[in-house]
């Protein structure tokens, strides 16, 4: 039953717990066709856990997740890896990959079990290297790159998957502002749906069409950045004082105050 407004991603009443600790409760969210959606919230609010449920490293105890109108549990891992790609935070690799080889790993879901490389694979890798701006690094060793370069290579690997939905888990962690903006620009320019966990509220306000705010595993607010990023909400969720100014195109700009954190 495909609705008229087909969603790239739909999460319905998702709950997840580790042992007896409830990490996520009753979360519903969606990414509409080609939309850039952000998830924000303090440390430990369950943002990354939510994303992990979507990219199938964790299994939800309740609720359902569908991508492009199909339930996640009905499709194989390999098929979902062709639909959605993840740029996560796990980059540590103990083996010597060249950048080119690393990006080629993104083709795994498209290859047979013996991993034969097709012409299509090579083209996709070339395109991804260009899109992520790492062509000149292609022959370098992954381990010898700086954190920012590694992050862009991992983005290239995700792009080589040729996904129809991109998940970003704090994609700009440890990056200087130039690379933060670069990564967000690349993601925006893809023209596919993006769901991003973000720490920086201003970056979220700049790039996201809609935001979901998580607090202690529950949805605290959802909506367009200009609607929901208010001093009250930010104080309520993060416990800090701030002013919200109006930037370009009415996008909110947050300026934090120096007062002691309220409890």
């Amino acid at each position: 039953m495909k609705g008229v407004f087909m969603q790239d991603l739909e999460v319905k009443k998702l709950s997840f717990s580790l042992g007896k600790t409830e990490i996520l409760q009753d979360i519903s969210l969606s990414v509409k066709r080609g939309e850039f959606v952000g998830i924000i919230g303090p440390n430990g609010s369950g943002k990354s856990t939510l994303l992990k449920n979507v990219y199938r490293v964790l299994q939800p105890q309740a609720g359902e997740i569908s991508v492009f109108g199909r339930h996640l549990q009905d499709i194989s891992l390999s098929e979902s890896a062709r639909l959605l790609a993840v740029m996560g935070q796990f980059h540590k690799v103990n083996f010597d990959f060249t950048v080119e080889d690393m990006v080629m790993m993104g083709r795994i879901p498209h290859q047979g079990t013996s991993g034969r490389i097709s012409r299509q694979d090579r083209l996709a890798v070339e395109r991804a290297l260009v899109q992520a701006g790492v062509v000149e690094l292609a022959k370098r060793r992954f381990a010898s790159l700086s954190g920012g370069e590694q992050q862009r290579v991992v983005l290239a690997r995700a792009l080589a998957q040729e996904p129809r939905l991109l998940l970003l888990d704090e994609p700009t962690n440890h990056l200087d502002i130039r690379y933060q903006i670069q990564i967000m620009e690349i993601a925006t320019g893809l023209g596919i749906g993006v769901l991003a966990v973000l720490h920086d509220l201003n970056l979220a306000a700049m790039y996201c069409q809609r935001l979901y705010v998580l607090k202690a595993g529950r949805l605290a607010a959802a909506g367009r950045p200009a609607e929901i990023l208010t001093p009250t909400l930010i104080h309520d969720v993060y416990g800090v004082h701030c002013e919200v100014l109006s930037g370009r195109e009415g996008r909110p700009v947050i300026v934090y105050g120096r007062e002691k954190m309220a409890v």
């Binding site: 990219y55 891992l77 979902s80 790609a85 690799v93 795994i108 079990t113």
Partner: peptide, 19 residues
């Protein structure tokens, strides 16, 4: 070879690559 390669990247990344 595909699975072996995915293993080098760690369990989580392997899952996101469909393995």
């Amino acid at each position: 070879l595909r699975e072996l390669n995915a293993m080098l990247l760690g369990e989580e990344t392997a899952v996101t690559l469909g393995v």
